[in-house]
Amino acid sequence: MKETFAAALRAEIEAVVTRYEALVASRNEMAAELSGAREAEGLRKELDALREERDTLARELLEARAKIRELEAQAASASELAEQFAAEKRFVEAGAGAVGTMLGDALRGALGRDIEASPAAYAALKAKGLEAVLIGAFKERGRSVGGAPLLEREKSPLSALAAAAGCELVTPEAGVRFVAASMDKAASVSDPAEEGNVVECLLPGLRRSGTEGALVFPRVRVATG
């Protein structure tokens, strides 16, 4: 009787233990599934964040490429502009030293605006023509050169100005015979020994490079008896 009761009790205890173990196993499985779900949710969030970052970087890359194309176009345009106005730029650079002199005033008057390093000035020079501006300036300065000789600041840029305009200077040497057909007498000086000869070239003349005909006659001082 005791053994039968003990066996029954043991069986009951074993059944309780089995149910407890099953419950523990079930809870462990549920915990594992819950942990996996949480981990998966975390991974999904991280993946979503990475995708958003990827999309942002892709947009920034497209914007950067568009900016590069814009800058390349601007650089090409600037290069074309610099090439288009290369002669005008050299002309302005050459004339910079004459600003504030009578030659500078003559250049400004011939162009109708200041001779300065600006797109507007380059465009005005291109439209007017460097040769025409220089001819006008030489003629205007030549009117007063007999009484107001060129300053050194006016003499030094003449060759560069002429070269930029596709011209060259015509400078008669002292002692050559004055020829009215190719020179203008701006002033005279009494010197019987040199009568009829050029004493000094006060302002060179102009001609197109590689040609013989003068665009502007040189202005000279001539000796008289």
Rank of each mutant, 00 (worst) to 15 (best):
A8S: 15
A15E: 08
D48M: 05
S182I: 13
E173S: 10
A31P: 09
A148L: 14
A78L: 11
G147I: 06
E63K: 15
G213E: 09
L47K: 10
K185W: 00
F138A: 01
P192C: 03
K67T: 07
S159Q: 11
R65Q: 15
A160S: 11
V170W: 00
T224M: 01
A160Q: 06
Y122D: 05
F5K: 15
G112E: 01
E152F: 04
V145Q: 00
A193P: 05
P218D: 00
L203M: 10
L81I: 11
A121C: 15
V99N: 00
G36T: 06
E212W: 07
V216R: 07
A94L: 04
A58N: 06
F178I: 04
V179Q: 08
V170D: 03
D55V: 15
A15K: 06
G175A: 05
M30G: 05
P204W: 02
L43W: 08
A40C: 07
G112F: 09
V92M: 07
A162V: 06
A78K: 01
S182N: 12
L202N: 04
A223R: 02
D184E: 13
R221N: 03
A73S: 12
E200K: 11
L47S: 13
E53Y: 03
L62P: 00
A165Y: 05
A37F: 04
L9F: 15
R207W: 09
S182W: 03
E41L: 04
S159F: 10
A123Y: 01
A32W: 04
M1C: 14
T211G: 12
L103D: 00
S182H: 14
A31H: 06
E88I: 13
A187D: 13
E29G: 00
G146M: 05
V220Y: 01
G225S: 10
L134I: 07
L103Q: 06
E194N: 15
V176T: 14
L61K: 06
A86K: 15
A7H: 13
E140N: 03
M102P: 09
Q74K: 13
A214Q: 15
A66C: 08
K126E: 12
R143Y: 02
A223M: 04
V179R: 08
E200N: 06
V199W: 01
F5T: 14
A98L: 02
A86Y: 14
A174V: 07
E116I: 08
R219K: 13
S77E: 15
L169D: 11
V220A: 02
S188C: 07
D114H: 14
A66Y: 07
E154I: 03
A193T: 09
Y122H: 08
S159K: 12
V199Y: 01
V145H: 00
N28M: 10
C201G: 03
A106Y: 09
G36M: 09
V176F: 01
T224Y: 00
P119D: 02
G196W: 02
L43N: 09
K139F: 00
L71R: 02
D105A: 12
S118M: 04
V99I: 08
L43M: 11
P172K: 01
L107A: 06
A76K: 15
E33W: 03
C201W: 02
